[in-house]
Computed example of a mutant assay.
Amino acid sequence: MKKNSFLFSAKGIFMATFLSINAMVDAQQTADISTISEKTLSSILEKNRTYSTQGKVADYIPELGKMDAKAIAFSVVDQNGKVFNTGDVHKKFTMQSISKIIALMVAVRERGEADVFAKMGYFGSEKPFNHFSNLETTGKPLNPMMNAGAIYTTSLISGAGEQAFIKVLDMVRYITKNQNIDYSKSVYESEKSTGHRNRGMFYLMKNNGLISGNEDQLDNYFKQCSIELTAEDLAKIGYFFAHQCVRFDGDSKYKSAEVAKLIESQMLTAGMYEFSGEYSRMVGLPSKSGVGGGIAVSVPGKMGIGVFSPALDQHGNSLAGYHMILDLVKQYNLSIF
């Protein structure tokens, strides 16, 4: 009995020590977040700059093909709303699919989540962002992050003409506290003139009774994708949803834990196109990419991250951007898992 008592006691001491060490390590990792600096970001950026030569700038929209493949930027808004920037942080690029999370927020605020998702799923997909998925059979978009679901979401925002687009633009300006943000008319025209696949989705949904309006609604989608901003603006968007829709300066006008949960869950499930599953495993953070080269990332309750590099991988995600995010996540143990 004495021997067993000793063994149990020794095991207890070992477990207590093990848990104590783990707690110390976790505490150290949490404390490390406060050491993030522009020097940190610069080091990570330079390490991953070479990836910009391995990807390919999107050219299926001709105007996007003019982007400088070597441009690269990295931005973080920390827990206190402080901004850290490195690289080509003044370089503007278009939101493209990142605009989908803003349109979803606007639509849900107007109509409620149940109404918005009555004819749209919460599903992920192994298909590319511009895949028709099951539109030709059920007529129901898989999720609001693929093009079909995003076109449908934007069509739900009230207002005639370009009012839906203006609401999305105004929300981007509010979240970033940047009234100078506007859309690129040249990218918009380029998207509109070549967007026949999106036009096909629009009319399939119209045929199935999901959409009742005219092509003004599709134009609003093209315009929201053409909104120009910087990596810093993306980091502020990431911060916004990471903090229950509270702006980086503390403005809580749109505060909503439920809206933030919805947006972040969709970012995690489908925000990186068909790469989302692997991305969730490797990075483990709600993120939304765009073929303009940007990625907005939310670290729930902590910070926002914005990256930009227009050279894309085969999924349409920024190649250097992904690796910068991955290195930051590993260095500071930021994954939610």
Rank of each mutant, 00 (worst) to 15 (best):
Y332Q: 01
A27H: 09
Q266T: 03
L104E: 00
T35S: 15
Q266I: 08
K302F: 01
N4H: 11
F6D: 12
V259Y: 01
D249M: 10
I325E: 08
L334P: 09
A235C: 02
E189G: 09
F222D: 08
L45M: 13
K119P: 09
Q29N: 14
S186V: 15
Y332M: 01
T53V: 06
S43D: 13
L326S: 13
N80L: 06
K11M: 13
N317E: 09
V246Q: 02
L268Q: 08
I72Y: 11
V83Y: 04
R247A: 15
P128A: 04
L229P: 07
K302I: 08
T176W: 12
E215P: 06
I181D: 11
S193C: 04
V168M: 08
D59T: 06
L234G: 03
V307S: 05
L64T: 10
S276E: 08
G238Y: 00
S276G: 07
I325S: 07
D26Q: 05
N130W: 05
Q331C: 06
H131E: 14
V297F: 02
P128D: 10
M272E: 08
M15Q: 05
K127N: 13
S287P: 04
S265C: 08
F123W: 12
G139K: 05
Y183M: 14
K255Y: 09
Q29R: 14
N85D: 13
I72P: 03
E191H: 02
Y254C: 05
G271Q: 01
I295S: 05
I44R: 05
T153A: 03
L234A: 12
K92Y: 13
H131P: 05
R197M: 09
G195W: 03
A16N: 03
Q331W: 07
G321N: 13
G306F: 06
Y174G: 09
S190W: 04
Q29G: 01
G277S: 09
S184V: 11
N178H: 11
T194I: 06
M171S: 13
R199I: 03
Q331F: 02
T94D: 10
V329N: 03
L142C: 09
M145I: 07
A150Q: 04
S212C: 05
N208A: 15
V307I: 10
K82C: 06
T154W: 01
F241N: 02
Y239S: 04
V25I: 12
Y279C: 10
Q96W: 05
